[in-house]
Design a protein around this nucleic acid. Sequence first.
DNA 1: CTAGCTCAGTTGGTTAGAGCAGCTGACTCT
DNA 2: AGAGTCAGCTGCTCTAACCAACTGAGCTAG
Lengths: 275, 275
Amino acid sequence: MSGRGGRARLAGYPLAMAARELQERIKKLIVDGRLPSGAPLPTEPALMAHLGASRNSVREALKALQAMGIVEIRHGFGTYVGAMSLAPMVEGLAFRTVAGHHRGEDSLLQLLELREALETGLISRLAGKLPDRDLDELDALVARMERQAAHGGDGLAETDRAFHAALYRGLDNALLGEVLEAFWEAFHTVRTDLGGAPQDPETTCGQHRDILDAVRSGDSLQAEAAIREHFGNIRSRLSAPRPRSSQERHREQEDPRTPRRHGEPGPQGRHHERV
Amino acid sequence: MSGRGGRARLAGYPLAMAARELQERIKKLIVDGRLPSGAPLPTEPALMAHLGASRNSVREALKALQAMGIVEIRHGFGTYVGAMSLAPMVEGLAFRTVAGHHRGEDSLLQLLELREALETGLISRLAGKLPDRDLDELDALVARMERQAAHGGDGLAETDRAFHAALYRGLDNALLGEVLEAFWEAFHTVRTDLGGAPQDPETTCGQHRDILDAVRSGDSLQAEAAIREHFGNIRSRLSAPRPRSSQERHREQEDPRTPRRHGEPGPQGRHHERV
DNA sequence: CTAGCTCAGTTGGTTAGAGCAGCTGACTCT
DNA sequence: AGAGTCAGCTGCTCTAACCAACTGAGCTAG
């Protein structure tokens, strides 16, 4: 008589306490309490009592919230309000892009175009409006980049990211900066995972300097052109080493929106199950 | 002697089988199998056998993947590769914005600025390049919008969203379209949740028509101006009913990165726990 | 013979209790 | 006083049962 699965509850709650609802209630806890990032959440037993759900359900809800970055869990320490960074978005985007790429889509190129659209749209409103302090920082970053390029290219990617991050800091919009960095990171992650050809360090350095010069001079058209040139460079290196022809996409479809049930494997069905 | 917690495993696997690793392995299953959206995944028992983990752990991993949109779970039916839509991003972004707003940040305004930056950056490359078919569709949408505005405004938001979606369809980049829609939805969700003043239907319709006219005429500068005007309108309605001054942000910090442990409540600690 | 219903069997959802593992702070021994 | 130990929190994993949603085969009524 161990796990009997009965429902001794506080009465008054619907018995079908969907997991979805648990998530919402925990989120409500955070919003209503105006809890800032890092604030402690109730322990699992406390949440069980408060939400009237079992340990397992509470944990599944927390796991989902953790995956969304809303909650942070530390083993042996406690549960806390998450940093709400866009890291989960990066992960989701990266996976989506990798999966799409492996299925023959040009998902990585689309991601690059997304970045290009955003940055070209933003650079014009920066031209000539950056304080000297930021310009000096960008100068230093380009210098470091050139130094790293000469010495084998170690840490070049990190400097590249720092450059783009510093560039758009002047917009005074934290969300904007985070989204840009998220897209950068997703792109970078996927490209390295896929073993794509890295950029030519020298060319890249030059383009970064061009961007900086244009922004400093205040010529917004030239700045936009410089950004576009930079992305064009990356794009060319991206589309070059692609073996599969672009016509061979969209295979293995077979009415994907009405999937068959388990136990009735389709053409490609359940061939993992046993492995 | 019911739950003994022993570890009868296939031997060869590390015993510390972190939940994180389970997620990675399931993701690998999808990528390596080149499974398209909607393809069936192994059942929970099958995953238990394949991954050598308990039902509970498998389910927690699946829950996390579900939260990221990588996996779709249907009660009584099976588990499938998710649509990889950006819906989870919408949810995360919306929550982040709501939470920020309740803490006194201008997060909603930042979200609006993000949309504005993206759309202004994109509209110029659309001007004069949309096929007649798309222009006709946009015409129809504006007409419907005007009709809805006259009849109380039911369904106006949906038409608004359709307009923006149709506008950027010509870019031939599915990701871009989805991101734009995701931002639109996050913004709309938060604004309605927060009970912000809705826009004036008449003005909004006029602005949409201005945008369409500018795009049709091919005048990219005018198109950009029209978009900016549109967002300016929304922005003004947003910042109007805000009681708190913008200087009073960044309170209640108190070193949020080294949170105290449970049982030692800080200034605002664990006041949910008992409720 | 067909339309509809019922029921067995599949799938995921939830609960329960026990033991495992990481971390901290107080207590104890040197 | 300093260092090691241990009790006690915390979250993590496992097992085992039952609950609920859904499908499809088979039966029944028309």
